[in-house]
Design a protein around this nucleic acid. Sequence first.
DNA 1: TCACAAGCTGACCAACCGGTCAAGATTATT
DNA 2: AATAATCTTGACCGGTTGGTCAGCTTGTGA
Lengths: 216, 216
Amino acid sequence: MTDAAPLPDTSRPRTREETRRGNERAILAAAEKVFAEAGFGGATMQLIADMAGLPKANLHYYFPTKEALYRRVVQNIFEIWLHAADVFDGADGPVEGIGAYIDAKMEISRRHPAGSKVWASEVMHGAPVIQDYLETTLREWTGGRAAVIQGWIDAGKMAPVDPAHLLYMLWATTQHYADFGHQIETLNGGKALSDRQWKAAKDSVKAIILRGIGAV
Amino acid sequence: MTDAAPLPDTSRPRTREETRRGNERAILAAAEKVFAEAGFGGATMQLIADMAGLPKANLHYYFPTKEALYRRVVQNIFEIWLHAADVFDGADGPVEGIGAYIDAKMEISRRHPAGSKVWASEVMHGAPVIQDYLETTLREWTGGRAAVIQGWIDAGKMAPVDPAHLLYMLWATTQHYADFGHQIETLNGGKALSDRQWKAAKDSVKAIILRGIGAV
DNA sequence: TCACAAGCTGACCAACCGGTCAAGATTATT
DNA sequence: AATAATCTTGACCGGTTGGTCAGCTTGTGA
């Protein structure tokens, strides 16, 4: 329904590589949206197929089962989630490191709200699909960051707060703007947050948390 | 499976009032659990019936449709949610008011995690059932508390932060311990938080936020 | 050009789900 | 004791869902 603009060369003869990549991408994008809006149980393969512009049977050609498709969606989100902490690492102190982390996670909440919702849903239901990731990758990741925070505390760069609970607060606060975006939008008069409001949200979160850990 | 203790008089002849109340309560409790674990779409009336110890057809005698049952569950949670702010009101300042609110909401997360998850799920999916509540009751509630916070700011009792974003942070942080309880438990070595750890969580949240808003 | 492999799809199916119903059981009312 | 109102339940039904499959089209390599 948006084929008015001059298409490049999307005409028929495409390579198999192109086709495969394009379809997989379309399916995963549609699946993320549908899983976020309806949950795993409420999502239907038919709806995902319609949204991806493919017949349902074709979905099962690329992804054998609904659960396999869901698993891929969750894994993709987990990757994005982890990479958000790259900014966390090379930082000299909490103001820089945690400030940048909040910015990065708020940006993900804004640009990738469906992904955040799928992740939240998965964890809320007991992480039936990515429990092993929680126990390995996430546990290591968390331990590493907690150590960095503890280092900042020992260096007198921030108040002695429990690093784990600080991390939970960072996750909770930033992801809230995606997961509960609908509630925030409703309380905002039914309008999505504007650029200005998103900046205000980021600044508020950073101000309270950075002051709260005695880093300013 | 816990019928060892001497039962009072739960023997057969019960009044209709007792029966009705008991069954409704059992159904609502089971439904809350199942909806929390599987989401609305993933939950089945059969599973709720089994968990409540009743035949499925009997569920439809008390609640005509799955959606009606779900609606009652969500409404119950909403009530609890609102009443948590009673402590917020008569407070003289942010330390007392917000401190008590955090305590109350953390206690709800601990005692009522399933309810919190159902609420989160409902909002994440666009609040199809309680949108009207968001636009009326919740909006008024939020406006009222924001005014209280603004009053504290004007009185110089705390730093000038945006009241709305502060409320979002309070909701996000406290509910995180219920909604993402499974993740926290996993990161805690697979063990549920102990009494001591729950106290540490409360204290961490209160310390960071109260210091973060310049109230200590 | 041709044969093969990869990709595509309409039609179909068994399983399951929410909801109905009529008949029976139990409690309240007269 | 008789009648009425409420509650209980197994059996059943139409509709939907995830998944299959045989046959088709299309790109690829020789």
